[in-house]
Nucleic acid binder design. Structure first.
Lengths: 102, 102
DNA sequence: TCGATACTTCTAGTTTTATAGAAATATAAG
DNA sequence: CTTATATTTCTATAAAACTAGAAGTATCGA
């Protein structure tokens, strides 16, 4: 996880429609959901949804896999966890370094 | 923490200049840093920095406090922690509900 | 009070992003 | 092979965000 990956991730999460898509998938668990169901649950029109889903996938927050004529989306839990951890990863290191020096 | 607060927070984190400002403050610890030092460390011009700092504060990610002619910024660790926890808060609840029903 | 310092607000041009209808693609079923 | 389903890509428009110089505000020291 570098800073570019982190900001891509947070930026992707930082819009209400996209975050609600992500939440629907996080709730759904490992099996994921087809795009159509995500559309029903969020009320986002198909073409707008495709756009947001593409951004979420590009940021590595979700994965997409074709199953017949549906495309099943799944939350990428590992990446989400890594992002959550990244926020405070370097908490207070300046202070710690000062203490080391002393 | 509601969805609007969460997306405001992630959106604020989701730009490289802002995230680097936040990181500088997270590293700095509770004492925080004056805006000028943040500018030195990030290389962001003053007016651009003021803009980003305002957004970070509006999202609740940092606090600003005047000390003489400097304005000291501090990371809001509680809010950052809450945001980190919010990402996976409702992980897999759909599955759990199914299991409850069964 | 005058000037220097620290920062913000104003402003304007540029770039991104969002939205959603219409058309296109991929798969499946009859 | 034709039609229906599921989703994407194309397109255009509108809205928002980014950047940074210039001008303004607040505070301190001489």
């Amino acid at each position: 996880m570098d800073i570019a990956a982190a900001t891509d991730g947070f930026s992707a999460m930082g819009s209400q429609p996209r975050f609600s898509v992500l939440q629907v998938l996080v709730k759904a668990g490992r099996d994921g959901l087809p795009t159509g169901v995500i559309g029903e649950r969020t009320g986002i029109p198909a073409s707008t949804l495709a756009h947001h889903v593409k951004l979420l996938a590009a940021a590595g927050l979700i994965h997409q896999e074709r199953q017949g004529r549906m495309i099943v989306c799944r939350a990428n839990y590992d990446h989400l966890e890594a992002l959550a951890g990244y926020i405070l990863k370097e908490c207070c290191v300046d202070k710690l370094q000062k203490e080391e020096a002393a």
